[in-house]
Design a protein around this nucleic acid. Structure first.
Lengths: 200, 200
DNA sequence: AGGTACATGTAACATGTTACATGATTCC
DNA sequence: GGAATCATGTAACATGTTACATGTACCT
């Protein structure tokens, strides 16, 4: 239930049309909550129906014409409520960790290259965030900048730094290329990993 | 498309029934890929239909009786393929970061308590992972333990450590309690944040 | 006979993804 | 008038969530 609130936030920062929102979800807000234009148009329709936003009056034809939205008082109230409400952190949900675990059973073929590829991608993303930091917070946190905006950027930098560090360590720790483990016939030899449920 | 592969991995580690899988998705595998029992039963049905797993023969009634599954060769092959395939890392998707950004617009009421609550939760989760590490990897990475399993645990520890650090810093950096910003009428006063699209 | 834990499922809905459809505007 | 870009949308499907339904086994 975060997409409507992401849109409310974006519209409060700057009233926009669907396509403008889509572009901003490819940059700023999209760095921690991405959405496609289909999702955005669908959600704009719902938010308008429920009276949290409204489309600014238009003249002339509608189809194919830009449609700007602004947040109504009810929308601002809902966003404020949501911001302070209790909502537990989502558990980790990462396909790469799942693949490492699968590799422990079916072999590490292709995994090394994939880890190096991810390492490069995370390094690039980290460099991107650091560039944003230099641009928007040249003096660090101490200056007049919004501590909330700065905290969000720090989270991006911190998470990407973690992945870069972890991937570098993991690539190191991986054996050169045994590629395939016992690789048994139909459901034999499975017992080798039994009992090592981990983490648990 | 990760749930079927999570189930294949779990079944290769240990042939199980739906409920047994559900329990393991509350512990070991669930720490980085959670799933409810409804998802698991639905997916078991699909995997059986597509010939990646099969139910072990049963005698007597079926409804309400345990049904064990094992992975077929096609399932093992599919899991090995997926493990080494290219799949980009998912972008960050975190409601808490979204709420920080929303708070920059609608005010920080309730946010401080929520951050402290998350801090406690992440500290508990970190302690949990560290306990698992002491239990399953007493000698660190150097011993005979599977480096893949150890890498997965290190990821859990590293991510939780990051959140603990970041939340502690962020709670510190937050102003005591201005609670509400200008709080204008319908869509006025919004200009104060304009142009500070961040990160972007 | 009733309660609890075990065990498998259905149904309805919310959210996210992928592919495609349509009209308006601008430039050549 | 054709291509590219801007702009809004539909449709179909995959995945995840929530609530509920049903039967078995065991204990008291």
């Amino acid at each position: 239930m975060s997409l409507p609130h992401a849109i409310l936030t974006a519209l409060l920062e700057q009233p926009s049309s669907g396509l403008e929102l889509t572009r901003r979800f490819d940059r700023s807000i999209g760095f921690f909550w991405s959405a496609t234009h289909q999702q955005i148009y669908r959600e704009l329709g719902r938010l308008e129906t429920t009276g949290l936003i409204r489309a600014l009056p238009q003249s002339g034809p509608v189809r194919g014409q830009k449609k700007e939205y602004e947040v109504l008082p009810a929308g601002r109230a809902e966003l404020a409520r949501w911001t302070g409400a209790e909502d537990d952190p989502r558990p980790i949900r990462d396909p790469l960790l799942l693949r490492l675990r699968a590799a422990a059973v079916v072999g590490t073929a292709g995994l090394d290259a994939e880890l190096r590829r991810h390492l490069d991608l995370h390094r690039a993303q980290l460099a991107h965030y650091e560039a944003i930091g230099r641009r928007d917070f040249p003096a660090g946190e101490g200056d007049g900048a919004d501590p909330l905006q700065y905290a969000v950027l720090r989270a991006g930098v911190g998470l990407e730094s973690f992945w870069v560090r972890w991937l570098a360590e993991t690539v190191e720790s991986l054996p050169p290329a045994p590629a395939l483990p016992p690789a048994p016939g139909p459901a034999a030899g499975v017992r080798s990993v039994e009992g090592s449920e981990n983490p648990s």
